[in-house]
């Protein structure tokens, strides 16, 4: 039993060594070199084996590093998107609200000033009535009252600044609204959850309604701009 087992073991060992020798030869050929001895062949094979394994390990490392890089980029995009959303939703909304507040405050102030001017005009009327009732020694009072009335009327005309600045503020507000829409669009593009999905075209987004402001509204160069209008009107729009 034992003798038979030893024979089988010797036979298997020989077969294994032959296979190993063949494998070492194959590996040597793969390396492109012709080792001189079995020891050299084994060393070369081990080196080759190690280098092949190292290649696979290297690829695995490379993939792991690539994956980490991709995760890092996605995280950065997520953070950028968060910043964009915060900028769009919080800061622009806040600025928008502030502009509206300034516009409303200016309108309220303008109304109050106009009311005050009306009351002041009524007082000048009262002075006129008093002068008519009690008489005046000369016309200096009447002259001053007329000048005062002119001043009050001129002040009322200056209140046109409110309409013009209101349009400028509305324009600034509209620019912010557009910027908000664009930032929201970019945030959607950077959303890792929707990568590859079709993003709504910014141009097809719903508009902000009819334009109720002039983006070029200005209190400057009124005379020059009026001259242009006068020229066109005079030529019947053929200019």
């Amino acid at each position: 039993m034992h003798a038979k087992h030893h024979v089988e073991l010797l036979y298997d060992s020989e077969a294994t060594l032959r296979l190993l020798d063949t494998a070492i030869k194959d590996m040597g050929e793969f390396d492109g070199e012709e080792p001189q001895s079995l020891e050299q062949r084994v060393r070369a094979a081990m080196t080759q084996e190690r280098s092949t394994s190292m290649g696979l390990i290297g690829l695995s490392d490379l993939l792991a590093r690539g994956y980490a890089e991709i995760i890092g980029v996605l995280d950065s995009l997520r953070q950028s998107r968060s910043l964009l959303e915060r900028a769009a939703v919080e800061k622009i909304h806040h600025t928008h609200d502030k502009l509206r507040e300034v516009s409303n405050a200016t309108e309220t102030a303008a109304t109050d000033i106009l009311n005050g001017l009306d009351r002041a005009n009524s007082m000048v009327d009262d002075l006129d009535a008093c002068a008519a009732e009690y008489g005046e020694s000369d016309d200096r009072g009447a002259t001053i009252r007329a000048a005062l009335r002119d001043e009050l009327f001129a002040l009322m005309g200056h209140m046109q600044f409110q309409d013009i600045t209101s349009q400028q503020l509305t324009y600034a507000s509209a620019v912010l609204t557009e910027m908000e829409a664009r930032l929201a669009h970019i945030a959607r593009v950077f959303d890792p959850a929707t990568f590859g999905a079709a993003v709504t075209d910014l141009e097809s987004a719903p508009g902000a309604g009819p334009v109720t402001f002039d983006p070029n509204a200005s209190t400057q160069n009124r005379a020059e701009r009026q001259a242009v209008a006068d020229e066109i009107v005079a030529t019947g729009a053929s200019a």
Partner: peptide
């Protein structure tokens, strides 16, 4: 056509 701000 009058360009704002206008005078009376």
């Amino acid at each position: 056509y009058i360009v704002k701000p206008f005078t009376p």
